[in-house]
Design a protein around this nucleic acid. Structure first.
Lengths: 352, 352
DNA sequence: ATTAGCACTCCAAAACATCGAGTGCTAACA
DNA sequence: TGTTAGCACTCGATGTTTTGGAGTGCTAAT
């Protein structure tokens, strides 16, 4: 088991690690503080409870575990969980979860897929889950079409790279004849096709306007509409599910905590901070926040595990699982890993 | 104050009604069982607590109030609430709620408006709220446009009466030339424009296909796409907000009840039954369900008030407020009345 | 018909008692 | 020197008892 932090090697010897491991695993399973006698029986190293006590005393001093109160057993501290997640989780060998029969019919809309993902994951894990739609960052324009709806209104349709479609109704003063509309369509398509959204700068717009000549105001309108239609994607969609699962864990089942947590889930805005956080950290693509490590204050008593999936081309979304600190990290991380692969597969299928 | 049930007139005399009213109002405010002494002081009719006790005893026998246990005060029964809602609420004279400064910028998308409505209402009332998007039932087709996106894909855009836009990507075997596309567009628009969705029957489709001649398969595809895009609207969108408000009411704050209620809100499917119920009842447009009157089992300890708003032409949506039985019916009903008017206003603005 | 008074009920909260899991420490042991 | 048995001690969890007070129903007086 590779250790990536030298100091830890010195701090903890083999036996302490075993004991710490035992404490955490036991606590994960029961949710109750675990005492020395339990460990003494549970582990293979044959030691009396007294010896364990000594070691546990050390572990406490080092900050890996703590006592809720004197004469109670020990529970893992955030530092303990962190060590566990970083070093103690068996990296492999878990049987593939029931996630196997996770056959999403590819024909459905992305939104529905994501909702379903959140739901399935929540059912599977018994934690709260969140899934964000991929942000359109870096997405390119594939196709633009203006059509006259009636006297005063034009419908602008924009299709992005990933077949995401945006509509916008533009109200114009003057009715346009078909020929003009055709010209504008050609102009816009040739001018904007293949550009990513950031690449549309003032220069591009100015050039388009110039070419549009007398109809430059329409171009402005279209650009506005484009901006508006796409800014909508900025406040990214977040789907949550299984939020009531947190009621199942007594350590969170305190009226105030619950109110706060559920509100956070309902508001969703705050959840977005988890996403940006995750994006910034690349590595394995799976990120674990324990307690205060999460950027959301109300989750200080929770742990959060997030994964990013890619829709190719830098378009990313996030899946997150929120549960008590004693969540089953192994299972959760595995589930996310599976799911990540599945999603990558689904969305990267060419065409529809 | 009109009484619509004769028997009630006989059952309750003036004084009993006053006392019942006092009991309910007091209980609505405090949430605590209310005793005879309180009433004796609270009402204008100068009666001693002993007299009140006698009357209350009668009222209990008649089923309007009940005791949680011997030697506790009285609380309203469902029958009591029903009487209150039907007869005792002052029909007018409430100051217009803060809902006044309820200025929704009309430019926003309907979906966002509805979300905002749910949120505002939840904030305003401190209950849980739900808002459904208007169902597209009876909506008419305003505009159809097919455009070639690339070799294999056609984008179909359908605009409905209320400026709701639906997109669908159709994968075709053969690439179509512009001329054909134009013809199809004209064909579809002339053939379908102004039709409501039910009006598109097999005969219509057959005629269109015939006219399309060699491209009849495309017509089929479009019809399929149309059906699919719109069926999406069938499982109607429901937005909820303030669901955690129910945690504020101790009488609901029981772990099991909360789990059930919150799950119902999260799932949303069950909420739909409230909608269909409401639709079937016309009358004032405002509907009050007390306890078991609601069609949702998990809400037996709640009351639900719903209102329908109209987008004209029979296209309707529902707003609902879910709270404890002791919700402030007057305020809630007024808020809904206000809102209903506002929404009617917003959506019925011509054009955008 | 109304009301004062009283005995009674029953819940909620406080006070108290008990239990036991778990600890730290010390002293004995291999 | 590391391990362990033993023991006194701690402290929350749990259960029982006590108490207080709000509220009732009934009766007798007004």
């Amino acid at each position: 088991m590779a250790t990536q932090d030298e100091s830890l090697d010195e701090e903890l010897d083999e036996r302490k690690i075993k004991i710490l491991n035992a404490v955490i695993r036991n606590y994960l399973a029961t949710g109750e503080p675990v005492g020395s006698r339990t460990i003494s029986k549970y582990t293979d190293l044959n030691l009396s409870s007294a010896t364990i006590r000594n070691e546990m005393s050390d572990l406490e001093e080092l900050g890996y575990i703590l006592q809720p109160h004197t004469s109670a057993g020990r529970i893992p501290s955030d530092k303990g969980y962190r060590f566990y997640v970083d070093h103690l989780i068996r990296e492999k060998d878990r049987e593939v979860t029931e996630m196997k029969e996770f056959v999403i019919e590819k024909t459905e809309k992305m939104e529905q897929v994501l909702k379903k993902v959140a739901k399935l994951l929540a059912n599977d894990t018994n934690y709260a889950t969140m899934v964000t739609a991929p942000s359109y960052h870096n997405n390119k324009i594939k196709f633009i079409q203006l059509s006259q709806m009636d006297e005063e209104q034009i419908l602008a349709v924009v299709v992005l790279n990933s077949n995401i479609v945006k509509n916008q109704v533009i109200t114009v003063g003057e009715a346009l004849d078909n020929e003009t509309l055709l010209k504008l369509n050609i102009l816009l398509n040739t001018g904007l096709n293949g550009l990513s959204l950031q690449e549309i700068n003032l220069a591009t717009i100015a050039r388009l306007k110039e070419q549009a000549g007398i109809h430059s105001t329409i171009v402005s309108d279209v650009m506005d509409a484009l901006a508006e239609a796409l800014s909508e994607g900025e406040d990214l969609q977040i789907y949550t599910s299984g939020t009531t699962n947190i009621l199942k864990y007594p350590e969170l089942n305190d009226s105030e905590k619950i109110t706060n947590l559920l509100s956070t889930f309902e508001e969703k805005e705050e959840l977005a901070s988890l996403v940006t956080e995750t994006f910034s950290n690349e590595e394995t693509g799976i990120q674990v926040y324990i307690g205060n490590e999460a950027p959301i204050q109300t989750m200080k008593d929770c742990s959060v595990v997030t994964a990013t999936y890619e829709l190719g081309k830098g378009v990313k979304g996030t899946i997150g699982i929120i549960g008590p600190k004693r969540m089953d990290y192994e299972k959760v991380m595995d589930s996310l890993k599976m799911l990540k692969i599945q999603l990558d597969g689904i969305f990267n299928k060419p065409g529809e």
